[in-house]
């Protein structure tokens, strides 16, 4: 059991959670993720590490309620049953700071994708690399942790589909205008966003790193649920990723694979909403 310090709603469908998990974060580097379980009979949910306080041993996560299991997580109050990690590989830039000291880097975050982007931008700033951040969402309500990301980004560009904050349009609109200013792009967000970013950056030959978030079970390379196609070959996102060269990822396949349990998920969600409303645990 892991002590939960808080689990607060930060937008209409997103939550921020603070958990005491010293061993998990002791050696964590941005880009890595954890797998959490609310209760003993819960699903294992992979979530990218959003922030940590190594001295106090606290792990911070941001997650969006997208199905039954994240809905259940949002009801967790004092204790989490399981937090495994850090899993996966660190972000390539964070892990090899010296190689990237003189590079011009842009981060592109979409929606809740700002949660994995933030710790990388912060880490790079702490290590002497300042980067630009383009952050997009459908509308202003879905733009999260603005004050935090602004503190660590060199230049911050917002963009919303409906123009309710920042520029109106998509992250690609903003990126294309400045694309020649950068040597490397890191794009994290919904698969469809990462796909559009990669289509654009490929045209301009701008190296792009993406973070894949397929279905997972164990997160340790044992089950193969997390298969992605990279460079025509199957890769296990949990141990070979989660970050890959975006120009080599088969996004269309990734999009389709996200629907494997669509029907089962909807059935469960319906059942759970009924039950949770009754119990409010």
């Amino acid at each position: 059991m892991y002590k939960v310090l808080y689990n607060n709603k930060i937008s209409s469908n997103s939550f921020e959670m603070a958990i005491e998990a010293p061993l998990v974060i002791e050696k964590a580097i941005p880009g890595q993720f954890v797998i959490v379980m609310s209760h003993e009979d819960s699903e294992r949910i992979p979530l990218t590490i959003y922030d940590y306080d190594k001295e106090k041993g606290i792990l911070y996560l941001i997650y969006q309620v997208v199905g039954g299991s994240t809905l259940e997580l949002s009801y967790v109050k004092n204790e989490l049953f399981s937090v495994a990690g850090p899993l996966g590989n660190p972000n390539e830039i964070c892990a090899n700071i010296n190689e990237f000291k003189n590079k011009r880097i842009v981060y592109v975050a979409g929606g809740v994708g700002v949660a994995p982007v933030y710790p990388q931008v912060k880490y790079l700033k702490e290590h002497g690399i300042e980067v630009d951040v383009i952050y997009g969402a459908r509308n202003i309500d879905l733009l999260l942790i603005r004050d935090k990301i602004e503190k660590v980004a060199k230049n911050m560009y917002y963009v919303t589909d409906d123009g309710s904050f920042g520029e109106k349009g998509f992250v690609t609109t903003v990126l294309e205008k400045r694309i020649n200013d950068y040597d490397i792009c890191v794009a994290i967000g919904p698969v469809i966003m990462m796909k559009s970013v990669c289509e654009l950056t490929k045209k301009y030959n701008l190296q792009t790193i993406v973070s894949m978030n397929p279905l997972m079970v164990d997160g340790s390379g044992m089950c193969g649920a997390c298969r992605c196609e990279v460079d025509g070959k199957p890769k296990f996102a949990c141990i070979h990723g989660p970050e890959f060269d975006g120009h080599k990822v088969n996004f269309d396949l990734a999009l389709k694979r996200m629907n494997i349990y669509h029907k089962e998920e909807m059935d469960k969600l319906f059942e759970m909403e009924k039950r949770l409303h009754k119990e409010e645990y």
Partner: peptide
């Protein structure tokens, strides 16, 4: 699927029990 995935969902995660939140393909 790999057999490991099917077995993990069923045995470790209890996907065959009604209380379990882990799905298994029908």
């Amino acid at each position: 699927f790999s057999a490991n995935e099917i077995l993990t969902r069923i045995n470790l995660m209890g996907a065959y029990k009604s209380l379990s939140k882990t799905p298994i393909k029908k």
